[in-house]
Design a protein around this nucleic acid. Sequence first.
DNA 1: AGAATAATGATAATCATTCTCAAAGATAAG
DNA 2: CTTATCTTTGAGAATGATTATCATTATTCT
Lengths: 142, 142
Amino acid sequence: MELGSNRKSRMISLLRNANVRITDQRIALLSVISEANDHPDVLELQKRAKKICPSISLATVYRTLLSFLESGVVHRNSFEGGGARYEMAKEEHHDHIIDVDTGEVVEFNSDIIENLQFEIASKMGYDVIHHRLDLYCRKVSK
Amino acid sequence: MELGSNRKSRMISLLRNANVRITDQRIALLSVISEANDHPDVLELQKRAKKICPSISLATVYRTLLSFLESGVVHRNSFEGGGARYEMAKEEHHDHIIDVDTGEVVEFNSDIIENLQFEIASKMGYDVIHHRLDLYCRKVSK
DNA sequence: AGAATAATGATAATCATTCTCAAAGATAAG
DNA sequence: CTTATCTTTGAGAATGATTATCATTATTCT
């Protein structure tokens, strides 16, 4: 599979900003993550990246995800059962509903909850560095 | 170390309720967990249980924790970094503040947040099966 | 282009956890 | 209290996810 040169140059400039070398595997992975609207795990990301860069190894996927994580480009979600799942970092924080039957993930956010968290932590003498709210749910049978 | 017979018989009756055979390792583990007011991991639990039942193996700790988990006697917390940490199940749900510097865990609860969660899930067509809210925090430097 | 430096692929190592199975222990019936 | 039955245990192997190692290859700088 070929990557549109428009998309490709967007990936390259993102990588330049992150101050890392431009490689085919990084372009492929970044492209795949930014294209995804689900929350794929490492194996799924490798599978998708291979369509663009067939040689990409699992080690490189892990390494690259870690560096993306550290530079704040992606977020890592460690839900119960199975490995970590990744998504593009977004401006506003959000939380997750995980469908316990299908593994599907949907996002939501609540400023009220968010503010209550900071209030509670503050009252107890803490600054919140980061936080996670996961709702393991089942679809309501109508 | 010897277990007071008072404590011991309390453990035994808890185990009888759970409908499992009474063994020294189960008595030891249950005693250690119900005594703990921190959130120990598996290795720490084995270490503490060994003081009461020196022969207890890691496999048995894992197995027993799983059975306690399934019968609802304990809760398992999978915080970031490191293995799962356990605590006695309590009547009311609570959430956790994890000190990112020390690993120390403190509990809190907020009915308002709790209710908002259910409301949000419901609005999106889901029933909440279980949920977790973890605040990774740092102590405010005064 | 060539030297310097960083990234890659393959695989070994690590860590947490679960599985396997023979031996030991607990429970139930006589 | 002894035997027969069925469960649990301990030791170590197996698994799954992730990270480390290292020689080879690719990227960047001059």
